[in-house]
C-alpha cells in the first residue's frame, strides 16, 4: 500500500513541473515585470527609477532563466525562474506584489473558506442523497418525473442568480442574517448560514440527478432482485442494500473535490465578504497581483492532484477488487 501511494506521489511530480513551466511562461514571458511594476506603483509620479526600485525589491530585476553575471550554481538559482517558480515546490510562495507574505495569508484565509465549503459539501451530500433516494423510491411515478424536471430546472439556473437572489431575499427583505461579513468562532455562524444554504441549493439539481442515476443502476442489479424476492421491504432494500453499494461511487466522487475545498468559492466569497481563499484569488486577479495568482495556480494544481491520489486510494480501500496496479 505504501509503495503504491509513493508511486502515485512520484507520478505527480512531473505534472507539477509542467504546471510550473506553463505558469512561468504565462506570467513572465507574456507580461514583462515592467508592466507589473507600473500597475502597482499607482497613478502619480511614476518614474523609471521607481519601476527599477520596485522590481529590485521583489526580485523581478533578475534575468529570466540564466544569470550571466553570476557564477557556479548561482547562474541558475539567482534568476526569476528559480526564485519565483522553482521555490514553489517547497511551498515557499514568497511575497505578494504589495509586499505581504503569501504563505501567511493563505494559512489565515483557508479557514473561512473551509468554514463554508465543508458544511456546504456535507449538507449538500445529505440533501442530494435524500432527494435522489426519494426519486429512486418513487421511480416511474409522477414524483420521479417531476423530480427530474425540477432537477433540470434547478440546474439550468446560473449560480449567480442563486447568490444574488438569495442575498436579496434572505438578507435584504427578510432581515434574517447579515448581508455580508465574517467573524471567527461561534459568531461566524450567522455569516456562513446563507452562503452554505445557497451552496447546497445551487448544487442540488445536478447532484441529486446524478445520484438518482447511480441508485437506479444499482436497483437494476441482480442482488437487489434477489433481496426483494426474499421478501425484504422496499424501504429496507433501498436504504440498506442499494445505499450501501451506491456509496462507493458517491464517496469517491466526494473525495476528489475534498482537497479543492481549500480554494473556496470565488464568487460566493467576494459577494458575502468572506475573507477566504476564493476572494483572495479574485482580488489578486483584479489587482493583477501576479505573485498571488501564481501561488494559487500552483496550490490549486497540488490540491487537484492530491484529490486524484486520494480517490485512487479510497477506491482500493472500499473496493477490494481494484488492484494496486
Amino acid at each position: 500500500m505504501i509503495a503504491y501511494i509513493t508511486r502515485r506521489i512520484l507520478y505527480a511530480i512531473p505534472i507539477l513541473i509542467g504546471v510550473n513551466l506553463l505558469t512561468f511562461a504565462l506570467f513572465f514571458v507574456v507580461n514583462k515585470p515592467d508592466d507589473m511594476a507600473r500597475v502597482h506603483l499607482g497613478v502619480k509620479h511614476v518614474t523609471p527609477q521607481a519601476i527599477e526600485k520596485w522590481k529590485a525589491e521583489r526580485g523581478y530585476d533578475k534575468p529570466l532563466v540564466f544569470n550571466n553575471s553570476a557564477s557556479g550554481a548561482a547562474q541558475f538559482t539567482d534568476t526569476i525562474f528559480f526564485r519565483k517558480s522553482v521555490l514553489l515546490f517547497v511551498f515557499d510562495f514568497g511575497r505578494s506584489d504589495d509586499g505581504r507574505d503569501i504563505g501567511l495569508d493563505i494559512r489565515e484565509r483557508m479557514w473561512p473558506s473551509l468554514a463554508i465549503a465543508l458544511p456546504a459539501l456535507f449538507i449538500g451530500l445529505l440533501a442530494n442523497i435524500t432527494f435522489a433516494l426519494l426519486m429512486a423510491f418513487f421511480r416511474a411515478t409522477y414524483i420521479d418525473v417531476w423530480g427530474v424536471v425540477l432537477c433540470v430546472v434547478l440546474m439550468s439556473i446560473s449560480g449567480l442568480f442563486y447568490i444574488i437572489g438569495g442575498q436579496y431575499l434572505i438578507s435584504k427583505l427578510l432581515h434574517i442574517v447579515p448581508i455580508s461579513g465574517y467573524d471567527s468562532g461561534v459568531q461566524s455562524f450567522k455569516f456562513i448560514l446563507l452562503p452554505v444554504i445557497i451552496g447546497v441549493v445551487s448544487g442540488i439539481g445536478s447532484g441529486s440527478r446524478w445520484y438518482r442515476t447511480i441508485f437506479l443502476e444499482e436497483i437494476g442489479k441482480d442482488y437487489v432482485r434477489t433481496a426483494r424476492a426474499k421478501g425484504l421491504s422496499e424501504l429496507r432494500v433501498l436504504f440498506y442494500h442499494v445505499l450501501k453499494n451506491a456509496m462507493i461511487p458517491i464517496l469517491t466522487g466526494v473525495v476528489v473535490v475534498l482537497p479543492l475545498l481549500f480554494m473556496g468559492s470565488l464568487i460566493m466569497e467576494s459577494f458575502f465578504g468572506i475573507p477566504g481563499l476564493g476572494s483572495y484569488t479574485i482580488d489578486a486577479i483584479n489587482a493583477q497581483d501576479f505573485a498571488i495568482v501564481r501561488a494559487m495556480v500552483f496550490l490549486g494544481s497540488v490540491l487537484y492532484i492530491a484529490g486524484l491520489i486520494l480517490t485512487d486510494i479510497s477506491y482500493t480501500l472500499v473496493d477490494p477488487r481494484v488492484r494496486l496496479g
Binding site: I15, G18, L26, V30, N31, T281, V293, M296, V297, Y304
Partner: peptide, 25 residues
C-alpha cells in the same frame, strides 16, 4: 496523458484569467 493531466490540473478560472490578461497585452 501527461499533457492533459497537466492542463486539467490547473484551476480553470486562473488559467483563463492569465490567458485573457495576456491576450489584452
Amino acid at each position: 496523458q501527461y499533457v492533459y493531466t497537466t492542463l486539467s490540473s490547473i484551476p480553470g478560472v486562473l488559467l483563463i484569467a492569465a490567458a485573457i490578461l495576456s491576450l489584452q497585452v
